[in-house]
């Protein structure tokens, strides 16, 4: 039996391979939810979802795509937004 604090699912479980070849169970804090498109709600690709201490050390280009509305809208929705702006 794991200790009572580890019986809840508030921590995520990670299998870690030890130097001796065993696989041990480690408990780590959960990752935040994945970013979603503001208009269609699809999961955004290329947007990192990590704990803040890891996000701090990440380069800017790994956190979100380098285009207008990057990290806010998916590429399809961004296209429609830009096209609508130009047509009006």
């Amino acid at each position: 039996m794991p200790k009572p604090g580890h019986r809840s699912r508030s921590l995520r479980r990670v299998f870690v391979r030890t130097p001796g070849g065993e696989s041990r169970l480690h408990y780590r804090k959960k990752k935040p939810a994945k970013a979603r498109c503001g208009s269609c709600g699809a999961v955004l690709k290329g947007v990192a979802s990590e704990r803040p201490y890891k996000m701090q050390n990440m380069p800017r280009s790994r956190k979100k795509p380098q285009r207008p509305y990057g990290g806010m809208l998916c590429s399809r929705c961004m296209r429609t937004v830009i096209i609508e702006k130009e047509r009006v």
Binding site: Q66, R67, P68, S75, M78, R79, I82, I83, K85, E86
Partner: peptide, 10 residues
């Protein structure tokens, strides 16, 4: 024309 894709979009 207007570019719709990539970092030059818009």
């Amino acid at each position: 024309a207007v570019k719709i894709a990539g970092r030059d979009a818009g």
